[in-house]
């Protein structure tokens, strides 16, 4: 069977991209193969592990469960873009200081989810952090360091907001 390739255009990390893709190509493969944004990882290709988590139009999504042709006209942010813009530099620093990563395979997805959590809930308790990130697997760290890092960032951000309020 032949399938018609399609031209898609979208914004990835603030850059406009126009590419011709097969409809069956997932967004994760599109980012990795076509755009060489290999920071988005594929761990299960079935939406379960969270390694492929990216941000689409302001919301996290599993890039393996989305077809590239679906994101026509959308704004996609990957770990590379978020790193360059510095939008969650504090999270990255906290992960680093707390060693909240070992092999790093889960890390981009963890960061994307953590960033979203903190925009929705600026004072999450440990249990809320655990629940929000529970769809992202990490096989190395045992998770505690990740919870610590996110908690620290939440506290630091709140302290900063507190100072501004004063």
């Amino acid at each position: 069977m032949t399938t018609e390739k399609r031209l898609i255009s979208l914004s990835v990390n603030g850059e406009l991209q126009a590419k011709i893709v097969e409809p069956r190509m997932s967004l994760a493969d599109f980012l990795r193969i076509e755009l060489e944004l290999t920071g988005t990882h594929v761990g299960c290709e079935s939406g379960v592990c969270g390694a492929c988590t990216v941000n689409i139009n302001g919301q996290t999504a599993r890039a393996c469960t989305i077809l590239a042709v679906q994101v026509e006209g959308d704004e996609v942010t990957t770990i590379e873009g978020a790193s360059e813009s510095g939008e969650f530099r504090d999270l990255q620093d906290a992960f680093h200081a707390r060693n909240a990563l070992q092999c790093g395979f889960c890390t981009p997805g963890m960061l994307m989810m953590s960033a979203e959590l903190l925009t929705q809930n600026s004072k999450p308790c440990r249990q809320e952090i655990r629940e929000y990130l529970s769809g992202n697997y990490c096989r190395c760290t045992g998770y505690e360091a990740i919870v610590d890092a996110v908690e620290t960032v939440a506290q630091t951000r709140n302290a900063r907001v507190g100072e501004q309020d004063d």
């Binding site: 069977m1 409809p23 069956r24 997932s26 290709e45 079935s46 939406g47 379960v48 599993r62 393996c64 469960t65 989305i66 077809l67 042709v69 679906q70």
Partner: peptide
């Protein structure tokens, strides 16, 4: 029909399911 894709696309990815035409209703 492709809606959220959270079941359909994983099924495609694992070749548990295939189709000729995906109709995206988003």
């Amino acid at each position: 029909i492709l809606a959220g894709g959270q079941s359909l696309v994983p099924d495609f990815n694992q070749r548990l399911r295939s189709t000729e035409t995906v109709i995206d209703i988003n």
